[in-house]
Amino acid sequence: MIEDLAFIGQIAVKSSIAVLLATLGEIITERSGVLNLGVEGMMLAGALCGMAAGVVTGNPFAAAAAGALAGGLLALVHAFFAVTLKVNQVLSGLALTILGMGLTSFLGRPLIGVRPGVRLRAVPIPGLSDIPLIGDIFFQQSLLAYLAYLLVPLCWYLLYRTGAGLKIRAAGEDAAAVDAAGIDVFRIRYLCTFIGGIGAGLAGAYLSLSYTPGWKESMTGGQGWVAIAMVIFATWNPLRAVIGAFLFGFLTALQFYFQAVGMELIPAYILKMLPYVLTILVMVVVHAGPGRRFGGPAALGIPFSREG
């Protein structure tokens, strides 16, 4: 029984890391007032570039960094259109997703079936990994998972306890006021969109370097969209992002568990659907839940221009 729990728990955490990283990034982006629906495309770019850099350099850090950078660079395309040109952010984000899907499908062709140059294997943390159950679940993960653990409180601290975080949140609530205070709204929004891209890129790199090493077309399987939904579920709070990501990971893990045990308790295709159904359900809960203030940034998706 304990072994089963440890097994499910470990895979649940493993399956939640990509969504968690992408959610954290998108929270920062949206907090600054920019809606970037290109997460899926940026994740794919991160996955492909991470894997490719791994093959070329053989260095896991260079691989992860390349993945993050790829996501960040794509995000800058969105920033240019959304912040500078002030176009419809939904359309620009969708275009970015299509661009990411097309580019990775196109450029990734030679990498299909290639053995990944590096893998980020699980690194047990001495001491912590010996704790029964907890150690198995949380502390026998890859380095990117530990990075995600650290980023949750860090993002929260950044947003709620630093001057920079105050500026970011203010830019997402009332950009004109921020501008009047002499702070550069454009710079904040560019930077936050870039950070969001880094998060999505890292999430993709995690998939291609650690979770399912190797490159496969559309290997993100909608996790980018799940992440955007989880931002709403988390009500734009990095600490709550953990819950959404873990729920997603848990339902993904159930598939592996039933497969491993060989039980056909629930048909495989229903299990496969569950993470997506859950993501829709959590959004419904946020909107229908009793007495919850639905606190999205007031200026989310609204471009700022000085002329008014």
Binding site: V77, F81, L85, V87, N88, L91, S92, L94, A95, L96, I98, L99, M101, G102, L103, S105, F106, R109
Partner: peptide
């Protein structure tokens, strides 16, 4: 899939 890339570029071009 080059056509998908061109589709995305076309959409960006339209926004531009």
């Amino acid at each position: 899939s080059i056509s998908m890339v061109l589709e995305a570029v076309l959409l960006f071009g339209l926004l531009l």
